[in-house]
């Protein structure tokens, strides 16, 4: 038997998949649960093939994939100085593209698609919401302007989002933490 079939393909990083379900009787942190951690391509697929598709989750649920050791929350030391590239999906995109966008995002992260900028990647979150689903890639350092822009451009290219029609914004977690109500945080960068 070829060694290729016996040896799993290692990933550059270990990743943890988290699932959030909005139970209002519990604290936010209690609703965020680790599902599994993996560090090979085969184990990534074993997990992905096993779980419910994002589009089939109830409103209020999230999937998050973060490097092992980083919690999917602003307050984590690896996240708090950074921000996120955020896509607010249109109604049509929610229906047609959510699952493919989410998978493409996962492939970008586990495959280290951002080259040397991949070190600044913390994770990704998909949020299923009645008002419109959201997809975001989180990075760790707001000061890394060049890296943030390269990540944004590469991400937009991988998702196949048309350049002039779709503008993607990057928001600092520090800004998101202090906004009131449903006002969106300002975009520090756009692509």
């Amino acid at each position: 038997i070829s060694p290729e079939l016996l040896i799993k393909h290692p990933l550059q990083n270990s990743w943890t998949l988290w699932f959030y379900k909005n139970d209002k009787q519990k604290q936010w942190e209690e609703n965020q649960r680790e599902i599994s951690t993996f560090d090979t391509v085969e184990d990534f697929w074993a997990l992905y093939n096993h779980i419910e598709a994002a589009s089939r989750l109830q409103s209020g649920c999230d999937y998050s994939l973060f490097k092992a050791g980083i919690k999917p929350m602003w307050e984590d030391t690896k996240n708090k100085s950074g921000g996120r590239w955020l896509i607010n999906l249109t109604r049509q995109q929610c229906i047609n593209d959510l699952d493919s966008y989410w998978l493409e995002t996962l492939l970008c992260l586990v495959g280290e698609a951002f080259d040397e900028q991949s070190d600044d990647i913390c994770g990704t979150v998909v949020q299923i919401r009645t008002k419109g689903d959201k997809l975001a890639v989180w990075t760790g350092d707001l000061r890394n302007n060049d890296g943030i822009l390269k990540i944004g451009m590469k991400y937009k290219e991988r998702l196949g989002l048309p350049n002039k029609v779709c503008v993607m914004g990057y928001q600092a977690h520090a800004d998101s933490m202090v906004i009131c109500g449903s006002m969106p945080a300002q975009n520090r960068f756009t692509v």
Partner: peptide, 18 residues
Amino acid sequence: GTRIIYERHELLQLRNSP
């Protein structure tokens, strides 16, 4: 140092690997 990078098609090819 070296980085383990997988192209999109490489990851997809392994999706149904035993």
